[in-house]
């Protein structure tokens, strides 16, 4: 009945979506390798009642038209891939990436998924796997009698066997970069899948061609800025209140019209 009601409704929905994104960020403030989301809004289409530049008489035209907006819509949630803080854990299978690149992990649906989460463990067969049990690609198997494992800055995984002082190299962890890392599809479990928007993965040795270096014994924390999220939450709540005030005002205007004419 009144356009202002529906425009206000789109504002309420947009702020609700924004709060969902903020609370997801806050819930994952301690998740290793988590990249925070940012919500993006855009205005909906305008109804052109009078076209700007239309002729008002033979020689004059309208300097500005009459365009009524119809509200706001949520257009995207963009993942921001800034580096999170690096924490020291001294655990031999914890790896942090300093710089660009993703670990490659074999997803159970058969495709390669990508992750920044370097909390790896050894499974019953000696393979290096993530905490959900998905093996790292290229697959690296540690023999059961290995005494210590060291992972170099370029990803080479070497072990020492009992009785031999030299290191034996058993494999190399390679990193993948993308043209547009924000275009990767997040699928949960700290994993991303390649999509048409991210571009094809460029696989390489860590430390070469602009790829980041690996640091054994450290983990990359979440890149959520808790203070920024709390301030955004205040802004979201006030914007929500303002939108509902606009709806209440329109409601009162209609009530006045119905009762006083």
């Amino acid at each position: 009945m009144a356009q202002a009601l529906w425009v206000g409704k789109t504002g309420l929905e947009a702020q609700q979506n924004r709060l969902s994104v903020i609370s997801n960020n806050l819930a994952n403030a301690s998740t290793t390798g988590f990249k925070r989301d940012r919500i993006l809004f855009e205005d909906l289409l305008y109804q052109n009642v009078k076209q700007a530049g239309g002729q008002t008489s033979q020689d004059t035209e309208l300097p500005s038209g009459l365009s009524l907006g119809t509200g706001v819509q949520t257009v995207a949630t963009q993942k921001l891939h800034q580096q999170g803080n690096v924490l020291q854990t001294q655990n031999p299978y914890d790896i942090a990436i300093q710089g660009f690149g993703f670990f490659q992990v074999m997803h159970p649906n058969g495709s390669i998924s990508y992750s920044r989460n370097g909390e790896f463990q050894i499974n019953g067969q000696g393979q290096i796997v993530t905490s959900s049990g998905y093996p790292v690609q290229p697959a690296i198997t540690v023999p059961p009698n290995a005494m210590s494992v060291s992972i170099g800055k370029d990803g080479t995984v070497s072990i020492t066997l009992p009785g031999q002082p030299e290191l034996n190299q058993i494999g190399q962890i390679q990193l993948a970069t993308f043209q547009n890392p924000s275009g990767l599809t997040p699928v949960g479990e700290n994993l991303f899948l390649e999509s048409a928007a991210s571009g094809a993965p460029q696989i390489g040795v860590p430390g070469t061609n602009g790829l980041g270096t690996l640091h054994q014994g450290s983990l990359e924390g979440s890149n959520v800025n808790v203070v920024e999220e709390l301030v955004s939450m205040i802004e979201t709540q006030r914007a929500y209140e303002m939108n509902s005030k606009a709806i209440a005002t329109m409601d009162q205007m209609l009530q006045y019209l119905n009762n006083n004419t």
């Binding site: 009601l5 409704k9 929905e13 709806i247 409601d251 119905n258």
Partner: peptide
């Protein structure tokens, strides 16, 4: 259920009923 839409629908219907 979209709560914002349902409440605005309620306001809208109430005013239409008054009309």
């Amino acid at each position: 259920v979209n709560i914002a839409e349902a409440l605005v629908n309620m306001i809208n219907s109430a005013r239409e009923f008054e009309l």
